[in-house]
Structures are given as structure tokens and as C-alpha cells.
Amino acid sequence: MFAGRDEQPIVSLKGVSKVYPPSTAALTDVDLEIERGEFVFLIGPSGSGKSTLLRLLYREEQATKGRIVVNNRDVTAMGPSDVPFLRRQLGVVFQDFKLLPRKTVAENIAFPLVVSEFSARAIRLRVAQLLEIVGLKDRRHALPAELSGGEQQRAALARAIVNNPVLLIADEPTGNLDPETSRGITQLLAEINFRGTTVIVATHSEVMVNALRRRVVAIEGGMIVRDQARAAYRDADAGPAAQPDRRLVASGAAPAAAAAWPGRGSRRG
């Protein structure tokens, strides 16, 4: 599942801190690596720093300290004019979908390609393909307001991957959806990951995490308190507090994390 060890991780955070002015520490000294092709859940209570971490990845926020590399680009060092080209390699999905209300489903999905100045023909082909994948072919002329929540999130997902991103970032993608619909979206995310896109999902949803059984990174108070690879996550049911991840050990946060998170039962969904 994981890419070869010799390949650079697609996401690498080293000693990253984020302080919102005047003095709200959202993230403190975070180390994290995500390999190409991985599927990672980012969990933690509200205000723990999940969203901030994701926003740092697509440069919606800038790190106060530390170094972030995404797909071999140093996000912390790049100038503002490089940001659009970073984002063209990423896809981002939100809890509130963020579809353009006056554009149809097809137009919404096509939007990143229009912005990236693809040809009309390429856009048409690719959008048709995406409508098929997310199952909205029949709804392509509908406006977002005419769609159900699940359909809107499918459209948003289609828009996020229309540019073939190397990394899909989803911030609470099922936050507004009922469990049944959530499962459908989760399944779609797994499919996208299966096609080779690295996926990071921040979520509160235990259902979602349990459904897929992938790597789980837990954040609390702006620090990574647990990082369980898929295999370790499975073993956590049996063993005490799982084996600390090697990256977590390196950061020195592991002992405290293990103490704070004795087992799966206390994890906030």
C-alpha cells in the first residue's frame, strides 16, 4: 500500500508551529510524514488544530515556525505567486461543500479546469468522466440548491479531483451528512485513494474511521498525541495503547500521547 521508502513523502511537517495573533497556539512543534498513496484520518476534538494543519498544507495559512513540504514543494518558503500552482496539484473538500450557487453541477466541477485554462474539449471530457465516477450524471444541469447534501458533497468531491490531484484534503467531509450518506462519501474517498490519490481526512466521525481502518493521526491541543498505522490500529484492540509510531518517537511527544490516549474507547469521534 505505501510507496517505496526511498521515495519522498508527499507530506512532510518538521517542527511546525502555528500561532494565531495575538497568542493563540493552534499547533505546537508538529512532526508528520505522509507517504504517497496513503489514506490518513486526522482526528481530534474541535479546536484541536486539525483544520489548521490542513490549511497549512494548501497554504491557506502560513506556519509560524517549522518546514512543510508538499509534493516536493516547500510550502513554507514559496512566494504568493507559486501558491496557485501548488493548489492545482491538490484537491480540497469542506464540510459546507463550498459549491458556487449560481453554477450548475457540471460548471462547478469544471471550475478548477477553467481557472487552470484547460481547453473546452478537455474540460468537457473530464467533467463527463467525473460525473460518472461520483454518480451525478443525471444531475449535471442542476444547481447546488436543488441537490441533497450527499449529492452536493459528491459534486464537491468531483470538483476536488477533477484536476487529478496528487493529494486530496478533506476537512470534515461528512460533518453535515447523515450516517447513510456519510458511508457513501467515505466509500467514494476510499475509491479515490484506490486510484492512487493520497487522501487526508479530518473528521469527528467514528463511523468513518471504523469503516475504513486506515492510519489515524490524533491531535489534541495542537499536538499530535497518537499516530497509528493501519496495522497498529488493528492491534490496538488487543495491546496497550498500540506501538508508538517511529515518527512520533522522534518528535518526543510519544510518552505523553500514550498516557493521554490510553485506548480507542476514549478517542473523541
Binding site: P80, P84, R87, L100, V115, S116, N163
Partner: peptide, 15 residues
């Protein structure tokens, strides 16, 4: 909102 989404999907400043 539209500007925010444009930025998100990689629209350049001039665009």
C-alpha cells in the same frame, strides 16, 4: 465566496 473558491482551486491573481 467565488473568489475564495477560485483561490482554492488554483486561480492566479490576475485571473
Amino acid at each position: 465566496d467565488q473568489i475564495g473558491i477560485m483561490k482554492l482551486v488554483g486561480a492566479t491573481d490576475s485571473f
